[in-house]
Simulated scan of single mutants.
Amino acid sequence: MSSMVDLRARLAALAESQWGLLTTAQAATVGANTKQLQRLVEHGVLARLRYGVYRLAGVPESPAEPLRAEWLALEPARTVGDRIGDDVPFGIVSHRSAADLHRLGDLDADYIEFTVTARRGTRSPDVRFHRAVLTPGDWTLVDGLPVTTPARTIADLAATRTDGGHLASVVRDALLQGTSGDDIAAALRPYAHRYGAPVDNGSALVNHFIALAGVPESSLALSAPALEPVVAASLATNKALEQLLHGHSSAHLTASLVSGPSDAAVAAIRNQLAHSVPSEQITLLVRQALAPLVESGEWRDMMARLRTRIAHSLDPQQFTSPEAIEEATNMLLRTSISDALLDTTAAPTGSSSEAEK
């Protein structure tokens, strides 16, 4: 009995960094044979997902689980950590499967697609392989899986003659998520003529897809130089964030980083936020102008770093609970960014007395 308990512990340790999944080949490295795995399935300790791949009991099911299981089966003897350490792992999630993981467009991902460097066969009707040579810049990690980048995904979909309406929705969502319009244009350049654009003119095809999919002006600015005011707003926001990171932030943030806010300061901020609600029109315009920036990974990373710095500066004795600290942190962060943006982007209109008249 104890040996079976030890075996379960070893399997759990193996599956811990693999979404709770493991393969028969991996299990063999910790002393589990096929017969023992079958017994664990019968006792409800393991669930068999496909031939040679199992999930530990108690691990929540995931929509990505079939994809993860098929990817593990490509190199069943190697762990996830070993494989994603390669410059280009064998078996990159691509095409429609990649678009689905990136949440690009509204394509039907009825089967699982991988790009591999060598010929590969499968008995599964749900799996398709594409053979191509990828570079380290062609893939990224999404939920722990190696996936083609949005730009490479768009190129692959165009190469396989995805219809224009669906490809336009993929391009739209890639722009909204922060992929460069130039990168998308470069990816589409070889296929521009297939979709009615001039030969080798990827930019023209991007603009066509934008018109077809109905991208907001904030994303249109990424590929349409005519909308310079929106681009200028994004640049101003970048400058404001630079100031925040290098110590030239608003008074609220500076005070919080130096000594932490007083109860009165927190109360004042809470009161300000509760009673200063911008008009719907202003809110909409600001959101549209900043969408290309605030929906990017760089923005999220920067906000996480700033939030951590503010939280560490607060005096926990001044708050009644961790939730109260989090609330104060979020208020200070919002107020500081708002002040920095106003200081950076607002044009002077004269003296304070003139502005009041």
Rank of each mutant, 00 (worst) to 15 (best):
D343R: 13
P150W: 03
H95G: 06
T308D: 12
Y54H: 10
L101W: 03
H312D: 07
R172I: 09
S321G: 09
A132M: 07
A9D: 10
L333C: 03
Q36T: 12
I84E: 03
R68W: 07
A347P: 02
N238R: 13
A233K: 00
V116H: 04
A267E: 14
E75T: 11
A233L: 00
A347F: 06
A192Y: 02
A151F: 05
G260Q: 00
L175R: 06
V215A: 05
L49E: 08
A32Q: 05
A185G: 04
E323N: 15
A240L: 01
I92Q: 06
E295S: 14
R189L: 01
R119G: 11
V277S: 12
L67R: 11
A274W: 08
Y195R: 09
P278E: 08
L333V: 06
P225D: 07
R103S: 02
S296Q: 04
S250V: 08
R123H: 10
E113N: 10
E356N: 15
A328N: 01
G91W: 05
L11R: 02
W71I: 01
T79F: 02
G247T: 04
S97K: 10
E70P: 00
T329S: 00
L205K: 01
P292C: 05
S2A: 15
N271S: 15
D86M: 04
P60R: 11
S219G: 15
A109S: 15
R39G: 09
P322E: 09
V199E: 12
Q272R: 13
L285S: 09
G31T: 03
L14G: 13
R287V: 09
A221C: 09
P125C: 02
S353P: 06
P261G: 01
S97R: 13
A304F: 02
D82C: 02
D263A: 14
A187V: 02
P136C: 03
Q281W: 10
V45R: 05
R10L: 05
V286Q: 12
R287A: 14
T34V: 13
A226H: 09
A347L: 14
A69K: 01
S180G: 06
G181Q: 03
L253F: 10
A311I: 01
L74Q: 05
D173M: 00
S97I: 08
G165K: 11
E75F: 02
G58M: 01
V30T: 08
S276M: 13
D126L: 14
E356C: 15
R78E: 08
D108L: 15
L188C: 06
A347H: 08
I282T: 14
L314D: 00
